[in-house]
């Protein structure tokens, strides 16, 4: 997958690049409006990440230009403003998703994959984790052709893990992804464990290996090469 990241902050750019490069993505960067304009006009990308506040112009303008030359490119807006107006405007201009700073890198990666599936793969991509396959269109999950019956939350959890294979996801990250602002005021994140326990049980019962590892019981990781006991 070929990505363009329009972001002026070098540290943030470095974080994103480090995280995404492990997936083997081809990442290009632009740190100001002119550079971004130049790149979207010269090359095509699968997904473009655009920060709204960039030197030399507005990210929304980059989005507008991009949509006029390559409307099928997947786009994700990144903004420091949690403002409804910006969000609505961005989505109206054809952005596929909107992410507010500070975001989780795991969350960004999951969104990139989702946007890519929708825009470039016709929404039919089957996500595979060894013997487990997830049909992201019909939301059906099978383990070696045995169907696994999951609740919507468990399904989302599995897709999230599959989007961030071999990455450590903390309970906080998972809770934010699945419940968003609802968990803002909750100290106790035990409900995350409940869902993981159920998901794990259902997958193992369907004949899959136990891929979801607990990391010091604070975070979790989908390990594609588990140490079989």
């Amino acid at each position: 997958m070929k990505l363009l990241i329009v972001e002026d902050n070098a540290d943030l750019l470095d974080n994103i690049l480090t995280y995404l490069k492990r997936e083997g993505y081809l990442c290009e960067t632009a740190q100001n409006y002119d550079e971004a304009f130049d790149k979207i006009m010269s090359y095509t990308y699968d997904v473009v990440l655009i920060d709204i506040m960039i030197p030399g112009g507005n990210g929304l303008q980059v989005l507008r230009e991009l949509k006029s030359v390559n409307p099928e490119t997947g786009t994700i807006i990144i903004s420091a403003k949690n403002s409804l107006d910006d969000k609505v405007q961005g989505l109206e201009l054809g952005a596929d998703d909107y992410l507010t700073k500070p975001f989780q890198l795991a969350e960004l990666q999951a969104r990139i994959k989702a946007v890519n599936r929708r825009n470039n793969l016709g929404g039919t991509e089957i996500v595979r984790v060894n013997e487990i396959s997830i049909n992201t269109k019909t939301m059906e999950v099978t383990a070696d052709d045995t169907p696994v019956d999951l609740t919507p939350k468990e399904y989302e959890l599995l897709v999230y893990f599959a989007s961030n294979k071999n990455h450590v996801l903390s309970k906080q990250t998972i809770a934010e992804h699945l419940w968003g602002d609802y968990v803002d005021h909750l100290d106790n994140l035990d409900f995350v464990y409940q869902h993981i326990k159920n998901l794990r049980k259902k997958l193992v019962n369907a004949g899959a290996q136990n891929y979801i590892e607990s990391v010091y019981s604070i975070g979790y990781k989908l390990n594609t090469t588990p140490k079989t006991a």
Partner: peptide, 13 residues
């Protein structure tokens, strides 16, 4: 928000 985003990302890494 931007420095917080950086800190958050570094912690994830």
């Amino acid at each position: 928000q931007t420095p917080l985003a950086i800190a958050k990302g570094k912690l994830e890494l």
